[in-house]
Design a protein around this nucleic acid. Sequence first.
DNA 1: ATGGTCGGCAACCGA
Length: 257
Amino acid sequence: MKFATFNTNSVRLRLPVILEWLLREQPDILCLQEIKAQDKDFPAADFEGAGFHPAFKGQKSYNGVAIISRQMPQEVKTSLTSIEDQEARFISATILDVPVINVYIPQGMAPGTDKFAYKLRWLRGLLAHIKENYKKEMPLLIAGDFNVALETIDVFDPESFRDEAGFHPDEQAIMQELLAWGLVDIFRKHQPDGGHYTFWDYRIPNALKRNMGWRIDYILATQPLADKSVISWIDTGARALPKPSDHTFLIAEFDMS
DNA sequence: ATGGTCGGCAACCGA
């Protein structure tokens, strides 16, 4: 089972890149974040034409998440059970009997701001949602843009980012609680070395070429599924295009036989 | 090479 996640920064603008990637890589499931489209504007027919079933939750201008699946997604839900949230940052579905959660965690701007408090509230809400609805002994996949780098090896300049949004101990502590509950960071399982990133800030010139990035996108799995993962990699293709996205595809394969 | 991030969406917010 081939599973992937990608922050699109506009699903409509990035549609040719996504469709080309789907046809080339043939994943079973692709989670998208920052689709930046209202539901009425989501390009559902294009995904259906490529042989996939889309489930999506959008809003105007910002945020928005989607699950693109070869099999029909069942039990689609678009809100956390733990907290109220006005923004389109959560979607879950069951696909081939595996529960899949796709999240776009708030970026948080800077510690001390309302946006940072919202980010922490959201992370705690996700932790509560998972504890309320799932068991660590059962298969569960969680993917998305968490906007949190966990370790010094996950950012290119940890000294200068220490205590800033995206690399702050309060965010990292909640994510570590999530992992401690019973989730495995699948890319890390297969790649213990640092310097592998999923995001490069547009505002840093030639960030990809200089490998000045962050690893803030994740595929997390409970142990029974994590035991089945055989490979995970980052596809920088979409970041290297003439009109690049700021994130990359992150992929993991699971042997379900 | 004589500039200097993107995207949505209509002036700026968010990342």
